[in-house]
Design a protein around this nucleic acid. Structure first.
Lengths: 224, 224
DNA sequence: CGCATGGTTCGATCCTCATCGAAGCATTCC
DNA sequence: GGAATGCTTCGATGAGGATCGAACCATGCG
């Protein structure tokens, strides 16, 4: 009964929610580590690792080891194209969009992504930082502008707090499907938001909820 | 954690072997009945029915009721395109082609498809019947030529044995991915092959195994 | 060297879902 | 109407696989 290509095998790899989330997160083109993918998928590290082995074995991912980090990325543009095609069908047949619960709504606005902020707020912030020339786009990379370095330092944000990681990195946003800011700067900004008590993390969730005053402060500093 | 389109849902629909086989069978563009799809997928009718409900609910199929027959077809070209994309990836990552067992090899050569013959033999036969102008292509349909009618009657093949079904129909071949002959004529030819003992059906399989002498007879009559 | 951190493997648990037989509908034929 | 055919629903069974905690490797840091 089996014929040529085993399409069920490939499709079932994408057919698990956790794996689908990982693949979706990788659609931005940026390779991610197992920990990051575990957080994005909302599963534990062992579970994520198991999924990643399967995706590797299925030929959907490539792996680049750098020191003790292992960066997973999509194997090819063909794989990305397949996922796009599936997304297209899912969008076409799924106008039965599930009513987003309050939790989900909060997540869409702002949530933690690994160690930095994600969601509409984060995407808007990155846009503004570009507008204000505090950050610069270079190909697919993000660089800190000279004016930006002094700016963030003046705000009390220590950019080099956690060295040995890139200062700026783009990270594709789930809900908005556009990039937000990762890297040590992204992490430092999230740290400041929490330290200043502008927002608190929702328990057992990745949602980040701003207080009215905190939101004002945040918008004044990053969205102005 | 859920965002817009539920890609895992769609992918998992394709990710079951039985459903994948059904979808693959429908890639020829011909709508098929539940029974035919059950045979193609190698599952029982209840199982097939359950799968078809799921595919319908997922929006991948359309249903056209004609009398007591229910014809299932792919919902859209977009769905077909998605399946093509998945097939492409499966072919690209799967040069680890499983060694075809003897059973599989036999299936590729000749097997039963519903009530008619499929496989390399069947595809070759249809080609020859066109060459000899016993059948005529008309758009996507197949018609019995006048010379064909008398020809088959002379061979002792009763074309009208099971009336109320089209005499000729194209059916996409799994292993060869080209059409073979279905319809009452296709069924009558298979009946003759079995009746003349040119071949026997493999137990618990769809494979059709020709005897050396039977193959000679068959080739003389249909592949000459 | 020992410690910390990023990842994987192992083992046990649990749950979803594919499967089929039997029974039930629906439609058509006689 | 009654019988036959095509298909679906129901119920019970079983297997695959997703999940996580704990233990185990590997790499880099002091």
């Amino acid at each position: 009964m089996r014929e040529g290509p085993d399409i069920a095998r490939i499709a079932s790899l994408v057919g698990d929610p956790a794996r689908a989330n990982m693949l979706n997160a990788l659609m931005g083109g940026t390779a991610l580590t197992a920990s990051e993918l575990a957080l994005e998928a909302g599963v534990s590290l062992p579970t994520a690792s198991s999924h990643l082995s399967k995706l590797m074995e299925g030929g959907l991912l490539t792996l680049a080891s750098q020191g003790r980090h292992r960066y997973y990325g999509l194997a090819s543009a063909q794989v990305a194209g397949m996922i796009e095609a599936i997304i297209g069908v899912a969008e076409a047949v799924g106008p039965k969009r599930v009513r987003p619960g309050p939790r989900d709504a909060a997540m869409r606005v702002a949530r933690v992504c690994y160690d930095h902020l994600a969601g509409e707020q984060a995407v808007a912030m990155l846009d503004r930082l570009f507008d204000r020339k505090l950050l610069l786009r270079e190909d697919n990379e993000i660089r800190l502008a000279p004016s930006g370095a002094s700016h963030f330092t003046a705000l009390g944000i220590d950019i080099h707090a956690k060295a040995r990681r890139p200062v700026c990195r783009a990270c594709l946003d789930w809900s908005v499907r556009r990039s937000h800011l990762a890297g040590t700067l992204g992490a430092a900004i999230l740290d400041k938001i929490i330290a200043e008590k502008w927002a608190r993390r929702e328990k057992d969730s990745r949602a980040v909820v701003f207080s009215p005053k905190g939101r004002q402060e945040f918008e004044r500093m990053f969205l102005a």
